[in-house]
């Protein structure tokens, strides 16, 4: 019972307390306006180069922007605890680690899902991209899987935040890697082979491919295998993140580096 409470209540409280971006003065520019401009940038780039359709860039960038709330959201729950000098207290508590950290991931996941759907819906209206009404429920499901998968990567990012002070730099670099490798603006078949191989084990790659197929009219059964791969990748990253959190927590205790600012 206490684990369930820790998961839901603890997760929500820590997210509200530590993810300072929930202030409208930060949320609106950073998570609602910025993705629209990222979409517009690459749509216009595609038009100038005469490569790809508006829909291609819209879907790719809207889904990829999930990375910002998911990577920063979880990392902030560690960096924020350190900043407010509560990290040591949290880690000294007997609370079970899995519900403690997974609970923090849940609101982050929901936030990433909202950001992706906002980018897709507003972007499609601005650009006049026709997304069939029947595609929206499937897109909502794909965005949910993508957000969960990216939150898994965020767990690993959060673990590194136990030892690395500059969590925002780390999150930005991970975001950039996903931008280049996940077929966001360049079809996977146009990437060099070594990049395409890496992209196949990164979160978002398969979700972006699935979302593009659904917008083009595919049904859920057609993209089922892509969604399964995306979910599997997210789960692997999440497990890796939880293991890394445990390992780096022990390391931080041993080296007394928990509260190092």
């Amino acid at each position: 019972m206490s684990s369930i409470r820790l998961f839901f209540v603890g997760g929500l409280i820590s997210f509200r307390a530590l993810f300072s971006w929930l202030s409208p003065w930060i949320y609106i520019p950073s998570l609602l306006i910025a993705p629209i401009f990222q979409i517009l940038l690459f749509v216009n780039l595609g038009r100038a180069a005469d490569v790809g359709s508006d829909s291609f860039y819209l879907v790719g960038n809207a889904i990829q922007y999930i990375a910002i709330p998911c990577l920063f959201g979880i990392a902030n729950t560690i960096a924020g605890e350190r900043f407010t000098s509560t990290l040591g207290i949290i880690l000294a508590s007997p609370a079970r680690r899995i519900p403690l950290f997974l609970g923090r991931a849940l609101p982050t996941l929901a936030n990433g899902w909202i950001v992706a759907l906002f980018g897709l819906s507003v972007g499609s209206l601005l650009l006049g991209v026709q997304v069939p009404g029947s595609a929206w429920p499937k897109i909502m499901l794909i965005a949910l899987v993508a957000a969960a998968s990216c939150t898994g990567l965020g767990m690993l990012n959060a673990a590194v935040a136990l030892r690395v002070r500059e969590t925002s730099v780390l999150s930005n670099i991970t975001f950039g890697i996903l931008l280049i490798f996940c077929g966001v603006n360049v079809p996977l078949e146009m990437l060099p082979d070594w990049m395409a191989h890496i992209s196949s084990v990164l979160p978002l790659t398969h979700a972006i491919e699935a979302a593009r197929a659904v917008v083009a009219g595919a049904d859920l059964g057609t993209v089922g295998s892509l969604l399964a791969k995306e979910a599997l990748i997210g789960t692997v990253f999440c497990v890796l993140g939880l293991v890394a959190l445990r390992f780096l927590e022990d390391q931080s205790r041993r080296t007394a580096s928990l509260d190092r600012m």
Binding site: L41, F42, L45, G46, A49, D50, V51, G52, R165, E166, V169, L170, N172, I173, F175, G176, I177, L179, I180, V184, N185, V186, M190, L191
Partner: peptide
Amino acid sequence: TSAFDGFLQVVWPLFFATSAFLVYRVS
């Protein structure tokens, strides 16, 4: 003083430049 920040300052635009180069190189 922050090597991380300095690194990001250089690398961040490179991510977008790389994306643009990958798109434009089709021409």
